[in-house]
């Protein structure tokens, strides 16, 4: 489109202090992108989003418009990028707008400040396989012909409320499972709720092992579910982490320690449209390749 028609105006959106602002790198999902990662400035829930819109008109040209406005939009896209674009299922849950200037004529470049004060961002930005949560600033120059639109995405992290988490933190997960006359283990994770930089600590106590165990691993599984039955879509990704090699004897205790900080993890999320859950799965593989596993849901949350 731009080949044939050159925008008569350059719109640039710049957040206040953008250079010094923290950015997140998100794996890109479009195949045409030049780099593997997209960089987005990071905002948190409740933070004001302020910035500067610069409109540059080509030298010696005038541009008529019926007003310029800026909006902050948050939307959930449950289409999935493999799906057909036509069935785009977009739900905008947040729209804030303000006018930058009344209808008139642009002769030379102009700067406009915008300020969305204390914006409540209900959801975290998220880019999953079937679901994505996006925030962006949209500048619209309303014209009689096609409007000129400029988007700028930013990323949002929501930090969990420390006090609400604290209540449950003290409870470790303890499980006692087994196969009759074959295997009996007790395992314990120090807690059910972890921050993303946390370490999962735990131990496995072998009460009975008739099984010839080859090794044992821990899988951290993220499960994203969206839609409602029967059109539910779900996707799981997992991280595997070997925690034991060889076959233990009765009475042996195997330590578990898994640093989460190094992995790209998603905190648990729940809303009407989709949810993201995390599970810890303990998998025992015996010498014949059979797998025995036990999944436990854990809660991940983001802290500062």
């Amino acid at each position: 489109m731009s080949l044939f028609y050159k925008n008569p105006v350059d719109i640039e959106i710049l957040f206040d202090g953008e250079d010094s602002r923290k950015h997140v790198e998100i794996p890109t999902n479009s195949h045409s992108a030049k780099s593997l990662f997209d960089k987005y400035p990071l905002f948190e829930d409740g933070e004001s989003v302020t910035g500067l819109v610069t409109l540059r008109v080509r030298e010696g040209k005038k541009l008529e418009h019926s007003g310029i406005k800026v909006s902050l939009i948050g939307s959930i896209d449950t289409t999935g990028y493999n799906n057909d674009v036509k069935n785009k299922n977009l739900d905008t849950f947040l729209t804030l707008s303000m006018d930058l200037c009344p209808p008139g004529e642009l002769v030379h470049s102009v700067n406009y400040k915008f300020n969305f004060k204390d914006v409540e961002k209900r959801f975290e930005s998220y880019l999953g396989k079937n679901v994505s949560v996006m925030y962006y600033i949209k500048v619209t120059m309303i014209r009689k012909s096609a409007d000129i639109v400029k988007l700028k995405k930013f990323w949002c992290h929501r930090y969990a409320n420390e006090s609400s988490i604290k209540d449950n933190e003290g409870k470790p997960i303890k499980l006692d499972i087994g196969i009759e006359n074959c295997l009996h283990i007790e395992f314990e994770y120090s807690k059910a709720q972890h921050t993303l930089k946390d370490v999962i600590v735990g131990r496995i106590y072998f009460l009975l092992t008739r099984l010839k165990v080859k090794h044992m691993e821990l899988s951290l599984i993220k499960r994203e579910t969206c839609g409602t039955e029967p059109n539910q879509l779900s996707d799981t990704t997992s991280i595997r982490y070997e925690i034991m090699d060889g076959s233990p004897v009765k009475g042996e205790t195997i330590p578990i320690r898994l640093f989460l900080g190094g992995y790209d993890l998603t905190p648990n999320m729940t809303c009407n449209y989709f949810n993201v859950k995390n599970y810890l799965s303990l998998v025992i593989i015996d010498e014949d390749g059979r797998r025995y596993f036990k999944q436990t849901e854990i809660m991940l949350y983001r802290t500062m």
Binding site: V213, I243, M244, D245, G246, S247, P248, V249, E252, T253, I254, P255, R257
Partner: peptide
């Protein structure tokens, strides 16, 4: 020394 418990295979351990 605690983490070494993870290797239960006799020779490797």
């Amino acid at each position: 020394i605690e983490m070494c418990r993870g290797v239960q295979h006799p020779i490797r351990g």
